[in-house]
Design a protein around this nucleic acid. Sequence first.
DNA 1: TGAATAGTGTCTATGAGACATTATCTT
DNA 2: AAGATAATGTCTCATAGACACTATTCA
Lengths: 244, 244
Amino acid sequence: MREREEPWEPPLLMVTVDLVILTLRASVLQVLLVERGIEPFAGCQALPGGFLSDEKEDLHAAALRELQEETNLDASRLHIEQLGTYGAPERDPRGRILTVAYLAIAPGLPEPVAGTDASGAAWTPVDRVLSGQVRLAFDHRQIFDDAVERARTKLEHSPLATKFCGGEFTIAELQGVYETVWDVKLDERNFYRKVQRIPGFIEPTGADRRAAKGRPARMFRAGPAKALHPPLTRPEGPHAEEES
Amino acid sequence: MREREEPWEPPLLMVTVDLVILTLRASVLQVLLVERGIEPFAGCQALPGGFLSDEKEDLHAAALRELQEETNLDASRLHIEQLGTYGAPERDPRGRILTVAYLAIAPGLPEPVAGTDASGAAWTPVDRVLSGQVRLAFDHRQIFDDAVERARTKLEHSPLATKFCGGEFTIAELQGVYETVWDVKLDERNFYRKVQRIPGFIEPTGADRRAAKGRPARMFRAGPAKALHPPLTRPEGPHAEEES
DNA sequence: TGAATAGTGTCTATGAGACATTATCTT
DNA sequence: AAGATAATGTCTCATAGACACTATTCA
């Protein structure tokens, strides 16, 4: 082992921060991708990100900054968490570049982002990437897969789903999040009771929402809970088992 | 956002790989710590680790290499996974240094490591660190806390516990792992049935182990499952709720 | 009124936890 | 036989899932 105490000059590396930003638009799970303008992988789709810039900037702050530049949303409605760091030697043809990947969840953003710094950014349905119809640069496919798997798992144990909704939402909308991300169909009635029984998950605002048809639905907001006890378990099925 | 395509020289950073190596010795959960010889934090305890050395070395491989240098165990019995990357600007007084932290689980190692490269390394009971009796250098306390929490959580959903045991173990031993890491008491009889019902978790070797007293116990080995369905849930209690 | 959506009630099978009981070893 | 540990059985209660039903809106 190379002791860090040795009088030896450690190698210097370049580090990027890349983002997997997921949102729900028109009941479709989408990810923000940018088209690369130059080599390597020119013309290819890639995750938004950039080099870790300021020597005094915290890693998490850097991710948040990039996220805001892409989506210009207030941080309070956003969820962001570190996904992992990717450091395979050949992941970038330009040389050894580490990337710290972040997963972000945003409520349905109005229109494809434009006019911001990140021109060329566009929402892309997640299944188009998962199915291979859209190819990603570098090892971004790997990062993307990990991100989707992380999101799916965290929906079970954390109140993450509320981050896909706005500040207020109906239970049916919340169920829609679960159904879309998990790609399953859930029973509305059992979901309704189950979700409300989890302490601190959601709390009623008192308001109703009336749609074009049907009985008005009660509105809820996210509660204080940081974890779901008991968890909302994903219905089992012919699932490939994954774990790190 | 700083596009990576710009003709602009990105900053270079130093990156270390640090390890939280957990093991079970005499039914006590222990972590491997080294005593720092020089400033900063001379004389303080720290997690073992070192600078990311070879430009062509994979991140994961680097962690594995450091781990083997510390414990000289064959990789097959070891578990290692990335924990996260820590990049607060002031985490190292020498300058901006990122660290990629790894969590490793090893079966009970015979004696305190010695004679290896890592002189000064010693097993330390985890509760001595958690309780603050042992102070750690840098932000290693944070990393350590995250590692313990990760291990506790993963015991529920993954066959991680078997990595604390050798190749073969009894169900009582496996239960001991859960009880020690979770710091709870479990019912032997319910545990016995529950564990065996989880498909692919453990499988009988056919052999028995006879102790000084009592009926011989059947031996098991880890099964092929990568995840536990259903999970082994930690008994609830006055738990502080944690989540990222 | 009917169509549509929201919300409630009920039944049943399964699983978790509490704990009694039986089995098999050593001394 | 005694003592100890392993393995099995039984009971009860809570919960998950299936699904019938009631409630409230708009057209």
